[in-house]
């Protein structure tokens, strides 16, 4: 379902060139649960951003669900992002003035889904992520774990095939982190492809496939 071939990502900082990714090739099947680990600066976030179509590789080819998406125009990328990909961030990134429910609704609003259908999906999502009692609360009235659950519900609202999480537990305590991982694993059980970037070996070990990045190169790729 995902095929990366010879992905290079080079950042230019002044005269210097930073090779964030060097010749990365990677195949991911539908429904896989993988973790991406590696030292700081090894290119984990960069890889995730390219997978999520937020960033473009300098060279290489990216096929998503059988389509070459490397050269698509920006608006087309936005559409694919909206419909096929869900993001979960370390810092949740909820809109502070909107309620939990309104935050979850955002991707559906952007996609122009009609309000009745939105309502239906919202009720399902709120129930699925245990947020019914928090629907009308703003982010500053929610705990970190609740915020991340809202963020995951938001990522799931368009029924994506690919969930990308960049250190989703990085800002949570151990216990809450495990709860959030359990939620992401539920997404995997329901058939979604889940890729998690993490620094925590224990979290990384829960995944069925573990990718190791060092200096922009894949140095390990083991499946349990």
């Amino acid at each position: 379902m995902i095929r990366l071939t010879g992905i290079e990502r080079i950042f230019r900082v002044g005269d210097e060139e930073v090779h964030a990714l060097r010749g990365v090739s990677l195949d991911i099947e539908q429904g896989e649960y993988l973790s991406i680990m590696g030292p700081s600066g090894s290119g984990k976030s960069t890889l995730l951003n390219i997978l999520g179509l937020l960033d473009r590789p300098n060279t290489g080819r990216y096929e998503l669900n059988g389509h070459d998406v490397t050269g698509l125009p920006d608006d087309e990328l936005a559409r694919v992002r909206r419909e096929a990909i869900g993001f979960v961030f370390q810092f949740f990134h909820l809109v502070p003035r909107l309620t939990a429910e309104q935050n979850i609704e955002l991707p559906m609003v952007l996609a122009g889904i009609d309000p009745a259908e939105r309502r239906k999906r919202l009720d399902t999502l709120l129930a699925a992520y245990g947020l019914e009692a928090r629907a009308g609360h703003r982010p500053d009235q929610l705990s970190g774990g609740q915020c991340q659950r809202v963020a995951i519900a938001r990522a799931m609202s368009m029924g994506p095939t690919l969930i990308l999480a960049d250190e989703p537990t990085g800002n949570l305590d151990r216990h809450t982190g495990q709860e959030v991982m359990a939620v992401l694993e539920q997404v995997h059980h329901d058939g979604g492809t889940v890729a998690v970037v993490t620094h925590d070996p224990e979290t990384g070990a829960r995944a069925h496939r573990r990718i190791r990045l060092v200096d922009g190169e894949i140095t390990g790729d083991e499946s349990a």
Binding site: L54, D75, A78, R79, R81, E83, H93, L106, P107, L110
Partner: peptide
């Protein structure tokens, strides 16, 4: 900034 970045990550087009 963050909100706009978020909206784009969630699939908002420049036009939106």
């Amino acid at each position: 900034r963050r909100e706009i970045g978020l909206l784009k990550a969630l699939g908002a087009t420049g036009q939106q």
